[in-house]
């Protein structure tokens, strides 16, 4: 079964001069259970907007999104129950400790107090947050914050994880720790959508890759498929070649 199904998603914004701009343009893709799907593209390609529509934070202008069988527009609460969402620059409640924060989000997901405590302690143990679990979030380093954030996204043990640039701005060590977390979650059977513009990271992690450029999905497939399609070895070259091709096509249409 497809855990995530983006069906012709469209999001248009009106620009200050009154024109309409499509940030996401008829985007369709599917993600199967236990897979990491990499949504790749340069800044401003529409990755974040797509993820926000998948999570129900933004209403699509057109199309629909189905997560674990629930339509995001029709059953937003059910979707939120099966979803862990991590945004690129998520803040934490500065004046709560990491542990308090995890307990709070567990309770918001409907866990009883005892359950929430157990769940938080389990994640603290599992993700190695012990050293700073009792510090206020305001006092944590960027890498520690991101680790707490991942714990927050995992707190309800959701089958689907959406992660928007989870390694943005992290040092090599934190980067590695977080990528390891994500792989472990995939191995536990979770469906993961990962957006990034670090291509080597995607090469290493993703089972399936969608290249998004100017709001459109310009190529999709496993790394091998993409290699064959483009005749390039490295993902960054594949990427450049495909973008280049799509620009040519567009120019020809015009």
């Amino acid at each position: 079964m497809d855990m995530v199904f983006a069906d012709n998603l469209v999001k248009s914004f009106s620009t200050p001069d009154g024109k309409e701009k499509r940030a996401v343009d008829r985007l369709t893709f599917r993600v199967g259970e236990g897979q990491i799907y990499g949504l790749l593209g340069p800044n401003g390609a529409g990755k974040t907007t797509t993820l926000r529509m998948l999570s129900g934070l933004m209403a699509p202008t057109g199309g629909r999104a189905i997560l674990a069988g629930y339509d995001v527009a029709e059953q937003p609460q059910e979707v939120k129950r099966v979803l862990g969402f991590l945004t690129a620059n998520t803040g934490l409640y500065q004046r709560l400790t990491a542990r308090e924060l995890l307990i709070y989000f567990a309770q918001l997901h409907g866990k009883t107090k005892q359950d929430a405590h157990d769940k938080a302690d389990h994640l603290i143990e599992w993700l190695g947050l012990k050293d700073f679990a009792l510090l206020r979030c305001g006092a944590l380093s960027t890498g520690q914050k991101q680790r707490v954030n991942i714990a927050r996204a995992l707190i309800a043990d959701p089958p689907i994880l959406i992660m928007d640039e989870p390694t943005l701005g992290l040092d090599v060590l934190s980067n590695r720790i977080i990528l390891e977390y994500i792989k472990r979650e995939r191995d536990r059977g979770k469906t993961i959508i990962l957006s990034t513009h670090y291509l080597d990271e995607a090469e290493d992690m993703c089972d399936n890759i969608g290249l998004i450029y100017d709001g459109k999905l310009v190529a999709e497939g496993t790394l091998d498929v993409l290699r064959k399609q483009s005749g390039e070895e490295r993902l960054s070259n594949i990427f450049l070649k495909i973008i280049h091709a799509s620009e040519k096509v567009e120019a020809a249409i015009k």
């Binding site: 934070l57 939120k80 969402f85 803040g91 997901h109 996204a153």
Partner: peptide, 14 residues
């Protein structure tokens, strides 16, 4: 402003 709103809004809470 602190960027916590998105995480809050994806919680299953009306």
């Amino acid at each position: 402003e602190r960027g916590t709103l998105e995480s809050l809004m994806v919680c299953p809470v009306p």
